[in-house]
Design a protein around this nucleic acid. Structure first.
Lengths: 170, 170
DNA sequence: CATTTTATGTCAGTCTTGTTGACACTCCAA
DNA sequence: TTGGAGTGTCAACAAGACTGACATAAAATG
């Protein structure tokens, strides 16, 4: 009896929900959900002539004000040339300020201006609305699971950066 | 006593985990996880000179063999010109076959060839490995929550398509 | 039968966002 | 003083999305 229940438990945890069909379903869910996830901010960004790359830069500068270019690069996982193109336009448009470092004057510390913070707020309100609705619909336990799975799906390096971001003020 | 507990419950469900910080964390989790999610297939695709667009086409043709171009378009949410560019190369490379419809001869029905199925298998094995590991680490309840939240995050139209895909054989 | 609509394909041009490679400048540290 | 790190910039390129225009074949409709 006990060994039977244990076998069932093993099945439940390791086979039952890990069929190809289930994994395929997970794959498609990620694909479709990510589209929804970016849809609302994309509409706003379009009005300003910006793209997702601008959104990401704005987001992480907001989260870690004073972050250096290099730090931002390791978070975004793109080349400095790509980031620089985006930063250049954001700085030219007065959304981002770049301050020479006091200790190390080679470094540039990035900050959002008033205008930058306004756009960031507009973007996050739109994005958070959808996420809040999804969280409410799914319920607290589902949200916990959602975060758990997503975290496990990241590369180890990104998982560390993700946790690092939680430690600071945010 | 009872009303107090009820109030706490309400707080727990509607405020506690829906702070700006929590929503921001969800946003970042989606961003980092999606990078991990695509990383492994991307490496394989690169060897063949393909990109994510090719992967998506291959995936959904595998899931729904005989699907028409228009059907695929509504799933992928791109323009026919974009899809056509991808399909042209896949057909030229002998991964996909396009058959004129029997009832309606305007339609083209898409199928994977043997070679196409082989690549699809290689890609899904890589992608499923990461997902399976993440699912095992997080556990069955977390996986259920993960799916629930992702489904709620999709646009209504995509949610229907997603469910539609579950109905057929998969 | 004539016309319109639908499904698909294709050409041409544009945009965003990523890539490499090369080079310059500043400045810290050995 | 020299080497290397952090940063900025130029040029060229590619993937993958977009729009607009046009072509073809076949189905649907009048």
């Amino acid at each position: 009896m006990k060994s039977n229940s244990s076998a069932e438990h093993w099945l439940g945890e390791n086979l039952l929900y890990l069929t190809d069909a289930q994994l395929r379903q997970g794959t498609e869910a990620m694909f479709f959900a990510y589209r929804g996830f970016t849809a609302d901010p994309d509409k706003i960004l379009e009005q300003f002539g910006y793209g997702r790359a601008h959104h990401r830069a704005i987001h992480f500068i907001q989260v870690s004000p004073g972050s250096t270019v290099n730090n931002l690069l390791s978070i975004l996982g793109i080349t400095k040339q790509s980031l620089n193109r985006v930063l250049r336009t954001l700085i030219a448009d007065g959304l981002v300020e770049s301050h020479v470092g006091q200790e190390d004057r080679r470094e540039r510390h990035l900050f959002l201006t008033e205008t930058g913070r306004a756009l960031e707020k507009q973007l996050s309100i739109a994005q958070h609305k959808r996420m809040r609705d999804a969280f409410r619909t799914a319920g607290p336990d589902a949200v916990a699971g959602f975060r758990k799975v997503l975290e496990s799906m990241m590369d180890q390096k990104m998982q560390n950066i993700f946790k690092e971001l939680r430690r600071d003020g945010i």
